[in-house]
Write a protein that binds this DNA or RNA. Structure first.
Lengths: 121, 121
DNA sequence: AATTATATGATAATCTTTATCATTTATTTT
DNA sequence: AAAATAAATGATAAAGATTATCATATAATT
């Protein structure tokens, strides 16, 4: 796999955020430094970065697919009100439900995040 | 919430399968007993059944949203080759990574299912 | 420098899901 | 039981997300 200017840029965009963005956000953000990049290139590179194990795809109910460049083992907490995703340490858990043939374990918590809880109280 | 013939039919279709199907499958299947039901009605009812806590929505990478009428606590194993979803007992796990504000915990394992492993050996 | 392979950007196409709206079905009220 | 109200339906348009296509551009190899 060649590391083109565009692939580099997409990766860098994702690497420098912790908001677990979707492709549209990554596209807009990457355009700030790479103004001619096309949306297809963003999707293409996200897919290739996922295939090559450099980033993770996160599937969340009710939202477009989101991405994460943090490859350390961790879970996600999805706010059902604002959609924000925050990292959760679930390191020890994946072992507990290991099954034959499993390559990875995704743990996703749904609920209301700190920010949203504060707003409503 | 009123339980119309159509809502009943959609629910029954889902209740009687363990393949964790998507809306298109549920639509086709429900049409066998309810030949005039429209796809919009299927989506509408799936959403309402989810909201009212009668069924679960399952978000899986690379597939349309899928649904499950089994409300007992369990995890899912998604086959990366054939897309099949099978149930996994993870009952004790959700407690282990509880976080403030969390309402539910989804555990999804990705890997290669039994069937697919057999085929390749 | 010529050849080959890979990546790009624009855009069309596809797939999934939701919105709209006139009609139908069910429930309440009179 | 008829009229009035509320909710659900089905057809289809619209929206949103993602992939496919393809001519062009860029990089690697010979």
């Amino acid at each position: 796999m060649r590391f083109s200017k565009q692939r580099e840029a997409v990766y860098r965009t994702l690497y420098h955020t912790d908001i677990h963005p979707d492709a549209a956000w990554i596209y807009a953000k990457t355009r700030e430094t790479e103004p001619n990049i096309g949306i297809a290139t963003v999707y293409r590179n996200l897919n290739e970065l996922v295939s090559s194990g450099r980033i993770k795809r996160i599937s969340v109910e009710g939202y477009a697919e989101r991405f994460d460049a943090d490859m350390r083992e961790h879970g996600h907490m999805v706010c059902e009100r604002c959609g924000r995703i925050t990292d959760v340490d679930c390191g020890s858990v994946s072992v507990a439900c290991s099954v034959e043939g499993v390559t990875r374990c995704e743990i996703t918590l749904y609920g209301i995040c700190d920010e949203c809880r504060k707003k409503n109280k």
